[in-house]
Design a protein around this nucleic acid. Structure first.
Lengths: 138, 138
DNA sequence: CTTGAACCTCTAGTCACTAGAGATTGTAGA
DNA sequence: TCTACAATCTCTAGTGACTAGAGGTTCAAG
């Protein structure tokens, strides 16, 4: 049995965040000492690691809640879990695509006034003002 | 002179968002009719387009505030603006890098239980629970 | 002059935390 | 056993960039 601070250190999840997860129902309510402090065991550690990993992968709290529910009801859980993971993957791919477009345009914009003589107007500001200069929509 | 609804239509920025930008000081306070409704001219339209474009590119409200200040004080504005744009670009590139790692891992996870026979435990959940399976840290 | 769409302000909610105040508890050393 | 102080507790409020809704007012077409 260990304290919230210990759990925090082991999982690298900040203390207020742990309490927040508990409040949100992601984490079961922890046992308490007679003095009302939380105590955790290995189960709590594993569950929090799971949550942390899923958050790192960009799953929303809502999605994680679903995944946890699936863990507790193993019937059909595999298909549902795969579905959630695939949606997440599609989401990530869409974000990458969009960011690449942004990268392209920002590269163009940033190159405006490099080492060479600075013209009267700032190219960066002009580029931002004039959407027509963009190669594509966004 | 046109109304906030008209401005919204032309810029594709929602009405409450326009008011929010005004409140944040991004947009100058609009002129008002005798009945207290906002009226905009071409200047307002251009400034909002600028803001919208910058937001689309992921610039924060804070960064846009700086860019707008630069527009009003053209001395040295070019270097400063280029700096802001470059930071933004670095940020975007970092995000892309991170998302690509996530994509890789999610692909691996999603492939767990495809069409073939569903095993006893869900691979997706197991993969999420066990960080050790990851190729890299995140 | 009437009607109803569009506008106004204000408050509160979203997501996933984070920060701080003020009080209580746990624990190591004397 | 006492003391000191680090760690914990609950609670409220703040973050960024909006979004939603209530309840009231104004504009413009017919």
């Amino acid at each position: 049995m260990f304290s919230i601070g210990e759990l925090s250190k082991r999982t690298k999840v900040k203390i207020p965040t742990i309490r927040y997860y508990e409040e949100m129902g992601l984490l079961a309510e922890a046992e308490r000492t007679s003095g009302n402090q939380r105590r955790y065991d290995n189960d709590g550690l594993e569950r929090l690691s799971f949550i942390r990993h899923a958050r790192d992968l960009g799953f929303s709290i809502e999605a994680i809640t679903s995944l946890i529910e699936l863990q507790d009801h193993p019937d059909r859980s595999c298909e549902a879990a795969t579905y959630i993971a695939s949606s997440q993957l599609a989401d990530v791919r869409a974000k990458i695509k969009r960011l690449k477009l942004l990268e392209k345009e920002l590269t163009r914009i940033s190159k405006g006034c490099d080492g060479r003589g600075v013209s009267e107007d700032c190219y960066v500001l002009a580029a931002l003002a004039d959407h027509e200069l963009c190669d594509r929509d966004h």
